[in-house]
Design a protein around this nucleic acid. Sequence first.
DNA 1: TTTAGTTGCTTAATCGTTTAAGCTGATTAT
DNA 2: ATAATCAGCTTAAACGATTAAGCAACTAAA
Lengths: 346, 346
Amino acid sequence: MSAKKTSLKDIAQRAGVSMALVSYVLNGKEKESRVGQEIAGKIKQIAEELHYQPNHLAKSLRSGKTHTIGLIIADISNPFFANIARVVEDEAKRNGYTVIIGSSDENAEKSRDLLNVLINRQVDGFIIVSSEDSAEQVRDLQEKNIPFVLLDRYFPDIQTDFVSTDHYKAAFNAGAHLVKNGYRRIGMIAYDSQLFHMQERIRGYVEALTGNNVPFQKHWLKQIRISTIEQGVKAAIDEMLAMEQPIDSIVFATYSLAISGLKYINELRLNVPTDLAIVSFGQAEAFDLYYCPITYVKQPIGLLGKTAVEFLMKKLKHPQAEPSQILMDAELIIRDSSKTKQLVHT
Amino acid sequence: MSAKKTSLKDIAQRAGVSMALVSYVLNGKEKESRVGQEIAGKIKQIAEELHYQPNHLAKSLRSGKTHTIGLIIADISNPFFANIARVVEDEAKRNGYTVIIGSSDENAEKSRDLLNVLINRQVDGFIIVSSEDSAEQVRDLQEKNIPFVLLDRYFPDIQTDFVSTDHYKAAFNAGAHLVKNGYRRIGMIAYDSQLFHMQERIRGYVEALTGNNVPFQKHWLKQIRISTIEQGVKAAIDEMLAMEQPIDSIVFATYSLAISGLKYINELRLNVPTDLAIVSFGQAEAFDLYYCPITYVKQPIGLLGKTAVEFLMKKLKHPQAEPSQILMDAELIIRDSSKTKQLVHT
DNA sequence: TTTAGTTGCTTAATCGTTTAAGCTGATTAT
DNA sequence: ATAATCAGCTTAAACGATTAAGCAACTAAA
């Protein structure tokens, strides 16, 4: 049977000294606290022998710091977020922090639950990919003075720390790229969401058209309810193709939309890009393996994650500092799914 | 500025009673502890007003239970594991547990680090997807009497709780399916790993051939080092095709191998399934979107995750009980990538 | 009238740390 | 000779909860 875990007390007893001394030594405070060389050595040795491992709970209770951060993401099964999680975890570890991940599944209620659970667990701060209708939660955190950094999605009318891609610019580039390659009837399938990043992607797309002499038509933009992606996307594509002047290309505003869309496009036996050119947000193996590799917006995942952790660390050190905010550029990875339009003779 | 968090003491003071009473009431022990109706009501009300949230650290320190479980998975960027993580998280939450996820990246050292960090944090138990060379770590846990359940991968010569797919049977079915559909030169690309689940997949594949009158040839089996997937897979495929009697079909033993393999097959402009039929382990959008949808082994992710949590809960309640072990059946999802071989006239 | 039992509450130890404050004896300064 | 300084240690409170044990006042039984 396993011996009980060794505590400071055990070491103190063995060494015949008080717990205080042991604590000082094992925290490297021998100098400041004037601990004798000899006894310090002895303590260290005994700690070693007994495989002493400090109890984080007790430490945290005393210090008020858990060295734990809560990461709330919108959907762990989305490879973009899964990879963000990985980066954040690694980076946090490098800073001596542990991460507790929670997936809100794009659901404000679940997100609030997660926040509460993690606040109870005394996490030191949060990194959050906000879900719809969660502005209130963000304000709550501010009122409670709980440090946090918003990741990928932020609220323009709330002053917070955030790290995000420049969604507007990314969408603009995606749209402009299609125009440049000869497409003139460019649709977008997006979520029906008030979240700012989605609005920005839509705005970027619209302005890419209008800014390049392609008058935007309202019915080119389809906004899908997040709860019914599958049917929504099908209906949207059907409509886009049934128009008098059918769409010749689609920008998908997210990875999940693209997956649903491409499946349906396959079902319809449409050819990419001759029947329909495609550009999508998100990135994943699926895009590489598609018979015609998909042009996509590549967000700087590593940098996003690292910077979010960095900002949070800064915030933890200086809670009253001005918010740090940064918008990063996405890269448009150009593949065959959007290649220059071949004019067909009629 | 935020008022300090309210503690039992605050409530006690306001109510003019001792902390003990407050604790009894808020833990629903009013009856056993003979707390007066009146004061109980008052306490509850004050707790409400002050938005009392118990401090988990203190609770845990006292009780020795953190209601936290550590989930160590081999690779969070693999969709199979990401989904497992999601299921485990949900199921744990339903049981009142929080999950701390760590990705070992198939690396024994990282896995050991994670274990140590989480043990320090006093997690109550672990769910582990073991990585190579981590048998020692498993034995350590047993010696320390730390409850854990192995998930997806287990060690046949260590008596532990585990929840796994029947990898042998799954691979056997995959191989037999190819034989049945007319393929006779069936290759396998697997990892060069001693992990039992990989050995079982290989064994299943081999026996599917020999058991169905297709004499297995040693050079049909390629084992790739996990550190060099990309090149390894390319070389393997090259060799398979350069044989005097080239391979006509491949079983990929994991999702990552399949992704690399399919990319290369695309590069080579080979047609699936006419040039090369494919069956793979793992599941993901990529397989659905492939121009010729990929036949794959679908593991019962939801059930695996739920059962792992269930087993761990059981273990936490009855640490000395006999290990619970279960092997679940995978389902072979048959698509076009392995469809009946068309004989070509020579 | 004593005894026993019940009700409603408080006291204080405990979990494993950290750390300010205090104590002792030796050395140095005046 | 006395005071001040310093090195090297100990004491004890605190973090926020839980809970066994005990105490006082009252009721009911003998």
